[in-house]
Design a protein around this nucleic acid. Structure first.
Lengths: 351, 351
DNA sequence: TTGTAGGCGTTATCAC
DNA sequence: GTGATAACGCCTACAA
C-alpha cells in the first residue's frame, strides 16, 4: 500500500485541498525551510533554490496561509483601526491613507467603528486584540483607561490620530484647542462680537470639547463669550445641523458669526441660512473645520480650517510601522493646519 | 529542579507572555478540550465546567488567539471587502453596513480598495485570500476572469454588490441600466429634448457603462440621443465635475437637462451652473444618482435616484453569512430604487 | 547555504 | 460530559 502517495494522503484529511508549503518544497525538491526562506528572506538562499521555489509556487498556485504564519511567527501582519465612523469623509480619507501605507508594508487593515462611543471603542479594541493585530490606530485623546492597559499588557503598540498631545500615548495630530482658537480670532479680527457656535455632540469627544474650549478661550481673551444660547450641539448630519442652526438664527439679537465644529455642520448652517433668507456673509459669517471636498465648491465657498487628513492617516500608519520595526519615532507628531479664508466670512455688519 | 513551574517554563519561551488556553485549563482544573468547548459550544459542557472556565478566563484576562483558532478550525471568521474607494460616501456607507452585520455574526472585516481598477481588485483579492478570508464582498459586475477562478479554486464564497445580474455570480443590487433609463424618461417626460450626460470614468466600471447605456436607450426610444458632444466623463470629484460641466454649458444650443451619473457629479454640475449664472431648474435641469446626505439639503434640493446603500451592504453581508452557514440564499437579490423629484428639475424651457 | 525538527495555541477526533 | 492527543501550516533555532 505504499502506492498511497503523500498527495492522496493529504487529500484524505480534513478536506483541506489547498496547496501547502510542503507541497511546494516537494515540487521544488528542497526542504520546507528553504521554501520559507525563499519566500520571506530571499537574500538568504541561493539563486537556484529561489528559482526552483518560484517556479513551483507559480506552477502550483501556492498561496501562503497567514494564520499559520501568524501562529508560527507570532506576528499577524495585521493592523486594527477604530474610528467613530467611516461615513464622514474626514475619517474615510484618513482610513484610506492608512490602508495605502500599510499595504505598501505588507500589512492588512482590520477596521472597526466606535460610533463615537468610548465604550464601544474599548470593545472593538478587545476584538482586534483577539484577532491578533500587531498594532492599533485610534482616533483622539479620550479613551477608556482599560484600553491602554489591555494594549500594554499585550505589548501591542498603538497610535492616536487627530489630536496632538505631547504627554499622552503616541499620536499624530494637531491641537484642536489652538486651531479653533485661531479661527475664533480670525472672526474677531473681522469685527464680529456676537458669535455663536455650532458644535458636534461633545460627550466622549475630545476634539469637540477642545474646539469648544479653544473658541471660548479666544472669545474670553477678547472680553467676550458666546452669545447667550449660542452654543448648540448637533449630530454630524446636514439635516441635524440645519435644525440646530435654526435655533441660532432665532436668537435676538442674532449672532453675526457662527463657528462650526466641522464642514458638514457648516454646510448645514449655510443651507439653512440661505433657506431663511439670511445673506452670507453680508449678514452672517459662517466658518467650517476640515476643508473637505465640498467646502471650496459651495456657493459661497466655505471659509474653513484645513486639516491634513490624509497626511495624518499616513503619518499614524508610518509611526506604527516604525515602532513595529523596533525603531523609536518621535512620540508625538504635530501636523500643520491652516485657516482658508473664502466666501462665507466677511466684516461684521454695522449695528 | 521540579520547582520550575509551567508558568516560568512558558515565560522562558519565545517571549510569549500571553495567557493561553492551556493556562485557563490549568487554572480551572479541566482539560484544554473542556475549555475550548466551554468557550465555543457551552451547551456541550456541564454547568460546573462552564462556571469554572468562565471564572478562570476573567481572572486571567484570557484573550483567544484567532490565528491558532483559524489554523485548527480552518475558518478565519474574517471577511474581505474590496471597494473602489471608501472616500465616496456611497461606498463607505455600504462598508459600514457590512461591518455592522458581520460584527453581529462574530466576523471581522478586512478592507481593501481597488481605486476603480480591476487589475488592482484582482491583486487585492489575492491578498485577502492569503489572509484566509472566509468570504469576499466585491462591487459591481465586471471583474477579471482570474478572480472568479481563484475564489472558486479555494472554495471561497463571494457576493457582488451594487449591480444586479440574474446570471452572474451571487449579487445584491439593482439594475443600473433600468434605473438610469427611468431617470432619462422622467426628464423626457418633463419635455426636455436637448439632453446631456455627465458620467464617471467608464473604463472598467460596469455601473457607469450601464447607466450611460440606460440613458441612451431611453433617449433612443424617444427618437433622440445625447446632444452632440453631450456625453462627458469626469472623475468623482466636485472640482472635476465642474470642469466637465463647463464644457457642457458651452455647447450651443445648450442642453436643457444634464443627467449625472452620481450625486457628487450632480452637485459639481449644480455649483458650476450657479457660478455661470445659469438658472436651475428654469434654464437647466440637473439630476443626480444615489441620494446621499447632501442631496436633499443643497439649494435647490437635488432631484435624484435613491439607492438603498446600507440595505445593499447589509444584504450582501447577510447573503455571504448564509452561504457560510451552508444555506442557499437566493442567488441574486434585487433592491428597489426610486426617483426622488426635488428642486433641480423642471419643465423644459420654451424654445 | 541548507535541512531537521520542535513548537506556535487551538480545535476536533477519539475513547472513556 | 470529559480528557488525551493528533493535526492545522508554517517559522526558526540549531545543526550540518
Amino acid at each position: 500500500m505504499r502506492a498511497r502517495t503523500r498527495a492522496s494522503n493529504r487529500r484524505r484529511r480534513a478536506g483541506s485541498n489547498a496547496i501547502a508549503l510542503s507541497d511546494v518544497a516537494r515540487a521544488a525538491g528542497v526542504s520546507t525551510a528553504s521554501v520559507s526562506r525563499a519566500l520571506n528572506t530571499p537574500e538568504l538562499v541561493s539563486e537556484d533554490v529561489r528559482a526552483a521555489v518560484q517556479a513551483a509556487v507559480t506552477r502550483l498556485g501556492y498561496i501562503r496561509h497567514s494564520a499559520a504564519r501568524a501562529l508560527a511567527s507570532r506576528r499577524s501582519m495585521t493592523i486594527g483601526a477604530v474610528v467613530p465612523t467611516i461615513v464622514n469623509s474626514i475619517f474615510s480619507a484618513g482610513v484610506e491613507a492608512i490602508e495605502r501605507r500599510l499595504e505598501e508594508a505588507g500589512y492588512a487593515l482590520l477596521i472597526a467603528t466606535s460610533d463615537y462611543s468610548l465604550e464601544r471603542e474599548l470593545r472593538q479594541v478587545r476584538i482586534l486584540l483577539e484577532r491578533g493585530v500587531d498594532g492599533v490606530i485610534l482616533v483622539g485623546r479620550y479613551h477608556r483607561p482599560e484600553l491602554a492597559q489591555m494594549l500594554h499588557e499585550r505589548a501591542v503598540p498603538y497610535v492616536c490620530q487627530g489630536a496632538y498631545a505631547a504627554d499622552g500615548p503616541p499620536c499624530v495630530g494637531f491641537d484642536n484647542h489652538a486651531a479653533m482658537a485661531s479661527m475664533a480670532e480670525y472672526v474677531l479680527g473681522l469685527g464680529h462680537r456676537r458669535i455663536a457656535m455650532l458644535a458636534g455632540i461633545a460627550a466622549d469627544n475630545d476634539r469637540v470639547i477642545d474646539r469648544i474650549a479653544g473658541a471660548r478661550a479666544a472669545l474670553n481673551r477678547a472680553g467676550l463669550d458666546f452669545v447667550p444660547g449660542g452654543l448648540v450641539e448637533a449630530r454630524y448630519d446636514v439635516a441635524e445641523a440645519r435644525l440646530a442652526m435654526k435655533r441660532l438664527l432665532a436668537l435676538r439679537p442674532r449672532p453675526t458669526a457662527v463657528l462650526c465644529v466641522n464642514d458638514v455642520l457648516a454646510l448645514g448652517a449655510l443651507f439653512e441660512a440661505r433657506a431663511e433668507g439670511v445673506a452670507v456673509p453680508a449678514e452672517l459669517s459662517i466658518t467650517g473645520f476640515d476643508d473637505f471636498d465640498f467646502a471650496r465648491n459651495v456657493e459661497p465657498p466655505l471659509t474653513t480650517l484645513r486639516v491634513p487628513t490624509a497626511e495624518m492617516g499616513r503619518g499614524a500608519a508610518e509611526q506604527l510601522l516604525q515602532r513595529l520595526m523596533g525603531q523609536s519615532p518621535p512620540h508625538a507628531r504635530l501636523v500643520p493646519t491652516m485657516i482658508i479664508p473664502r466666501g462665507t466670512t466677511g466684516p461684521a455688519p454695522a449695528g
